[in-house]
């Protein structure tokens, strides 16, 4: 992990664009409490397995802790944070792939819940989250990041461009492609036996 952190440090995220109120220096605790949820769910949505989610989130904030004084307020905190998240996540996912064992791997079809009961709204949301995360697994990292920021976090396209270090046209193209691929993945799921069973209920 030291290597990963060093690599991150040597490659700071782009920090241009929308201005954040930089009149007061940010406190680490403030950033942590304000943005923990964002970092946590972003890591999740970018595909960090549950087993290493805590680790990943903590690594993100270790980088934040170390580099907070470098934050110049030229971008929003969330944009800046996401730049860190995506690098840490990519590193974690690469590590996870290297270490993947039979017991750790989860087949896509298994990610989709087939429980017959969904007794309340929160369970339905949890299930939607699970399905969406399974669908997101079909995307490559670039499209996944663009889609998560656009559709789930509702970042503006310029913000996404900044957070991911590409131009706005590329962002548009990635979001479009991501949506197309997700629709196709959902269609495949719909035609699976599991969906047939579910829809028949």
């Amino acid at each position: 992990m030291q290597l990963a952190l060093a690599a991150i440090d040597s490659n700071p995220p782009a920090a241009t664009g929308a201005a954040e109120d930089a009149s007061e220096p940010l406190s680490f605790e403030g950033v942590y409490s304000d943005h923990f949820d964002f970092v946590w769910r972003s890591a999740r949505r970018l595909g960090v397995p549950q087993a290493s989610l805590d680790d990943c989130v903590q690594d993100v904030f270790l980088v934040v802790h170390r580099r907070l004084s470098d934050f110049e307020g030229r971008s929003s905190v969330r944009t800046w944070l996401f730049g860190i998240v995506r690098r840490v996540v990519r590193d974690h996912r690469a590590t996870a792939r290297e270490r993947a064992t039979t017991s750790d791997t989860v087949e896509l079809s298994q990610l989709v819940d087939t429980r017959s009961e969904a007794p309340d709204e929160s369970a339905a949301r949890a299930e939607a989250t699970r399905i969406l995360n399974a669908l997101l697994e079909t995307l490559d990292d670039d499209k996944r990041e663009a889609f998560v920021l656009s559709e789930l976090e509702q970042f503006s396209v310029p913000e996404i461009a900044e957070a991911t270090g590409v131009n706005v046209n590329t962002v548009y193209a990635r979001v479009r492609a991501a949506r197309r691929e997700l629709e196709q993945a959902l269609a495949r799921l719909r035609h699976s036996q599991q969906w047939t069973q579910r829809c028949a209920k």
Partner: peptide
């Protein structure tokens, strides 16, 4: 999965957006 229709990507996205914390 009664509130979220499985045949709509947008419905899944909407539910996941508020349900993943």
């Amino acid at each position: 999965m009664r509130e979220v229709e499985p045949n709509s990507l947008d419905a899944i996205i909407d539910a996941a957006r508020v349900g993943d914390h």
